[in-house]
Design a protein around this nucleic acid. Structure first.
Lengths: 230, 230
DNA sequence: CTCGTCACATTGTTGAACGGTCCAACGGCC
DNA sequence: GGCCGTTGGACCGTTCAACAATGTGACGAG
């Protein structure tokens, strides 16, 4: 006890403890997310192993770990390839978003959650002014993540974060051209309406606004995708 | 084209294609879920490898795959151990459940979703009559999963299923003695009320019933845990 | 054009090995 | 007795080499 008293300043610290496999996984993840590895690219174990200077087994472990996310697709004896954004996958993602976000704003919101949403909205407005597409997408997702926090569950937040990662990957991959989010004046206005309804504890309106906003987003996306195909 | 026309009957089928690592993962999973591997048990790669007659690398892959779920805990240079149910972990689980389920019943429900809930309720009542604790827990979870289906998202359903697996593991692990769910007459009644409110499209009542039900479940659980400690 | 066949690339799995880390036990020292 | 360095063993993380099994593409016969 006495020895413990003299160590008051000590707090549990975390060490480097990251296996090489995990580092490789993170590396590949960033490569996928920033577009260095395009959808459909096969992840050849040997090439990755030699280029990164690690064993093939370690690369296998990394790819297995990466398999948790849906950024890659695995097939027996065929290896892993970078996931290819499908319309179906996008729809699945947006179904999950719609469910989660509409459900979240349908519940009574605490003060700190509302404050978080307000802060996220401010960030989004600033990003919209600057005009950096990548940043706008990130701040957009952050705003919606702030609303989901209203569930008050870390697990749900983590789940939503996973969806957000996938979504940003899909958007970046699909939008070879610009997204031009800011071009739509209604884009910001929709977010403002959502925040206002939440702050006013008007759950019915908030739910409707979120639903409309997401449906509108899907509509925009479809228009852009169809345009890209033609 | 002509050759395709003569193959109308063919539909995409799935083959055996299951790697040894995946089989080992499934095997370990069942061992954990049915209590053969008790919480805190270390998963020694060598022993598993020799007893199952596979290579240690394969076992490593299996354990990595298993790491996706939270049934095991991994620590660098210390290996994996079967997860130990903590009160905090249980609370996190129930926070997620509460958020998801309350959110789900707050949304308008379609006819087929309501039918699914009704069917799940009937199953639960039958199971309660039989009195098999394991079965009651399963049917209880199935009922709540049916309500979550109201989100209309496969991803959310999958997420909830993951929670359910963890939950059943925790309940089985914590309840060394019986759960005696059926002993509480209110247990079934709460489910009936939830269903009735959903079927009546009375979202406010449904949300309140679900919230009360989950809080009540947590209370029951805590009482049982505290009793077990003493 | 279709269908075998065959060689090649890649993955799945194994076995062995080496260094590093954790852990418990032992023994010296105050 | 309590504290600390040492020691040895168990186990993990990682690498390497090899073989089997499977997918892939090309080539040629019919």
């Amino acid at each position: 006890m006495a020895s413990m008293a003299s160590m008051q300043g000590l707090t549990k610290m975390s060490f480097q403890r990251v296996s090489t496999a995990e580092q490789v996984r993170d590396h590949i993840t960033t490569l996928i997310l920033d577009g260095s590895l395009k959808p459909g690219t096969p992840l050849r174990e040997n090439t990755i192993a030699t280029t990164l200077g690690v064993s093939r087994n370690t690369v296998r472990e990394a790819v297995l770990l990466l398999g948790q996310s849906r950024l890659i697709r695995h097939e027996m004896h065929r290896g892993a390839i970078v996931a290819e954004p499908t319309k179906d996958a996008l729809i699945n993602l947006y179904d999950a978003r719609r469910g989660l976000e509409v459900g979240a704003v349908s519940l009574p919101a605490g003060a700190e959650v509302i404050a978080g949403i307000k802060s996220a909205l401010d960030d989004l407005e600033r990003a919209a002014d600057d005009g950096d597409d990548r940043d706008i997408v990130a701040k957009d997702l952050a705003f919606h993540a702030a609303t989901v926090r209203n569930f008050g569950s870390e697990r749900i937040d983590a789940f939503y974060a996973q969806l957000a990662v996938e979504l940003s990957f899909y958007l970046n991959a699909l939008a070879a051209s610009r997204l031009d989010y800011a071009a739509d004046a209604s884009f910001l206005e929709e977010h403002r309406r959502i925040y206002a309804a939440i702050a006013a504890q008007d759950h019915a309106t908030a739910a409707r606004c979120v639903e409309d906003h997401i449906d509108e987003t899907i509509r925009r996306l479809h228009a852009r995708l169809d345009a890209a195909e033609a």
